[in-house]
């Protein structure tokens, strides 16, 4: 039974940041995502929940076109970011990914120094004119990643030498360093212990002030703790999407209820 502490939250009425209409995803002949329609709001944490293989990660990867790197993957339908179709032929995925950052399931810092991990994105996008500006971006990003105090004295040490939780916060800092507008997180806490998870969740809540955050999670408690909006995916369908409080207390669809009460999944 679901009985995690939960407080009613109200979502400020904000603009729609990402709007998906009739999205279909095929892996070869496998129809992985079926007719997904969703409006993701700005300055909001949106959680995607659902059993393994339900397509929530696949859909997340559509939002910054990471699926482009998979040859057999086809995406149909329309996904708009601020009213612009991100699958338009004129859109360069590189520019899109600068706007829509991503944090992965497994912490994946570059095998470079902590400083270079953060500075890489700003460097390739030309965000800093000189070393001082770059230093400033690195510090700001590490502070936003809530890891500055732990690493400020060893910026030249390899990022791979940090603990798992620190690595993941480093990856979040790296993702925010390019000043994205949307931050996609694919099960960011699945490789972390409860303390590191709590730190990352706190961080996600802080990030909401500046970004639209979309988080895929296996943990329903986590979805309830960090998100304002929740979408429940099942077998490639978006079953239900709404206020987190409503999904967890009074779901409309029986499948959602079965899942959050632990009967399916």
């Amino acid at each position: 039974m679901y009985d995690a502490p939960y407080t009613e939250r109200t979502t400020a009425v904000t603009d729609v940041k990402i709007s998906a209409r009739d999205v279909q995803v095929y892996y070869g002949d496998n129809h992985a995502i079926k007719d997904v329609n969703v409006d993701i709001q700005d300055k909001t944490v949106t959680a995607f929940i659902g059993p393994s293989g339900c397509g929530k990660s696949t859909f997340l990867r559509c939002l910054n076109r990471m699926n482009d790197t998979i040859d057999i993957c086809r995406v149909l339908g329309k996904i708009e970011l601020d009213g612009e179709d991100i699958y338009d032929k004129r859109v360069d995925p590189v520019q899109l990914r600068a706007k829509v950052g991503m944090v992965f399931q497994k912490p994946n810092p570059f095998p470079k120094s902590i400083y270079d991990n953060i500075a890489y994105g700003p460097r390739i996008h030309g965000l800093a004119k000189n070393k001082a500006e770059l230093d400033e971006i690195v510090e700001k990003s590490l502070r936003r990643g809530a890891i500055w105090d732990e690493v400020k004295d060893r910026l030249s040490e390899p990022g791979t030498g940090l603990s798992g939780g620190q690595q993941q916060r480093l990856c979040i800092a790296r993702a925010v360093a390019t000043e994205p507008e949307v931050l996609l997180m694919d099960e960011p806490c699945s490789a972390l212990d409860p303390i590191a998870t709590a730190q990352v969740e706190e961080l996600i809540d802080e990030l909401r002030a500046n970004f639209s955050v979309v988080i895929v999670t296996h943990s329903m408690q986590q979805a309830a703790r960090v998100s304002q909006k929740t979408a429940f995916f099942h077998l490639g369908n978006l079953v239900e999407y709404g206020e987190t409080g409503k999904i967890f207390t009074n779901p409309e669809d029986p499948r959602t209820e079965s899942y959050i009460t632990g009967r399916i999944g």
Binding site: M66, V94, R97, M102, F104, Y120, I124, A177
Partner: peptide, 27 residues
């Protein structure tokens, strides 16, 4: 070279060529 390194580079907005020459090739 682990695919996660490619994902990481693409995720911060590196092009495929940048990903290869900055991250994959050195490894």
């Amino acid at each position: 070279v682990p695919p996660s390194i490619r994902d990481a580079a693409l995720g911060v907005g590196a092009s495929r060529t940048q990903t290869v020459f900055h991250h994959v090739l050195p490894l």
